[in-house]
Design a protein around this nucleic acid. Structure first.
Length: 106
DNA sequence: ACGGTGACGCTCA
DNA sequence: TTGAGCGCCACCG
């Protein structure tokens, strides 16, 4: 597909992995980065999601911080939380309930 | 080429 | 437990 700004294998990998996360589950930026191959690039992952050209196509709202917190969202963490709750994920004050239980593993 | 920015992570006080 | 600081990687002007 055409590169919208720059060919980034890294980003492509991010969306790809994120798309295989089932509904009602969540994944951490760290795990995502690890799946790509760079455990230290959790930040870069967030950056990729932040600028992701396929906003509604990719369930970016299923990506949370490694400590179980919601993290951030381009449209606001509130929206992210609402989406998660809509999928059956219980969120308590910006934190995932039973985080390790709904955490998706590859 | 360089510096700044960002939806992060971990350690220390 | 909470807050602040430093380090990490990738993208953009």
């Amino acid at each position: 597909m055409k590169k919208q700004y720059n060919s980034t294998e890294f980003e492509n990998k991010v969306w790809q992995i994120l798309k295989r996360v089932p509904r009602g589950r969540v994944i951490t930026y760290q795990a995502l980065a690890q799946a790509i191959g760079c455990l230290q690039s959790a930040r870069a992952v967030g950056n990729a999601l932040h600028k992701n050209p396929w906003a509604p196509k990719v369930p970016c709202h299923r990506v949370v911080k490694s400590n179980g917190q919601i993290g951030g969202y381009r449209s606001g963490i509130r929206k992210k939380t609402a989406l998660l709750k809509s999928e059956g994920v219980r969120v308590k004050d910006g934190k995932i309930v039973d985080f390790e239980k709904i955490l998706y593993k590859f």
